[in-house]
Amino acid sequence: MVDQVAKGTAKGAAKRSTAKAGEPTPPAEASPRLPAGRHGLPREFITQNQRERIITAMVDTVAERGYNATTVAHITKAASVSRRTFYEHFADKEACFLAAYDMVADHIRASMRAAAESFGDWPQQVRAALATMLRFLSSEPELARLCMVEPVAAGGEIAARHRASMQGFVQILKAGRPEHSGSRPLPAATEETLVGGIVSLIVREISAGRTADLDQLLPDLVELILAPYLGNEEAERLARSDAAPTPES
């Protein structure tokens, strides 16, 4: 469904109009407004369609106004649904945001895991997972803002969900502890600190309007992440390696 939401956003529309030969061809517009009056569509289809439209509207509205300034009225207007329909699907604005956030975060997490599992050695797993995340965020500015910038501003349950979600990358990094050859054990919070640095830099780049360039941060991020485990020289060598790593078959 994350693909459908992405396609339903303004960026998704732009992407459809500029798709090149050989690239995956996006299907038609996701979740269009249903025809008025009697249409004989199954109830389940209608419900799913409404939910997708509401979530897509949430993504677009938050991208335009920010979470705190977004109201349920903005969302229902953008989704072309009534307030009653909105509350049939979601308890409140926060629940709607969390549904959108979970969908995007689950997609990123699954993509990162799949990318990491393509490699046998840990440093390349880290690089692949990070590259996958940066590539997704740089190609989907609205979703990048929704899942990286707005949770910090929203605070409360949303910020807590965001921190919990980041634990996925913390686990990938912790798998590198056996690679550490230093004289003393790494600090307990090394991984949380590194992930905090990554997130903070990404948030600042998005806020500064440089979302499309996020994937250019990869070498610097990989170098800093690998350094505590492999030492600075090896981290730099792996991070600056020109050759793209090849997944194991």
């Binding site: 910020a159 921190r163 919070a189 949380e192 600190t193 590194l194 992930v195 905090g196 640095g197 990554i198 997130v199 903070s200 830099l201 948030v203 600042r204 941060l217 610097d220 991020l221 170098e223 800093l224 730099e236």
Partner: peptide
Amino acid sequence: ESVSRCTAEIVAGAIYGTVLGRIE
């Protein structure tokens, strides 16, 4: 020049993110 300015920004973000998490 072997370390970029970006490294300092990541470190600053790491410090901020850690302090934020610890305060919370």
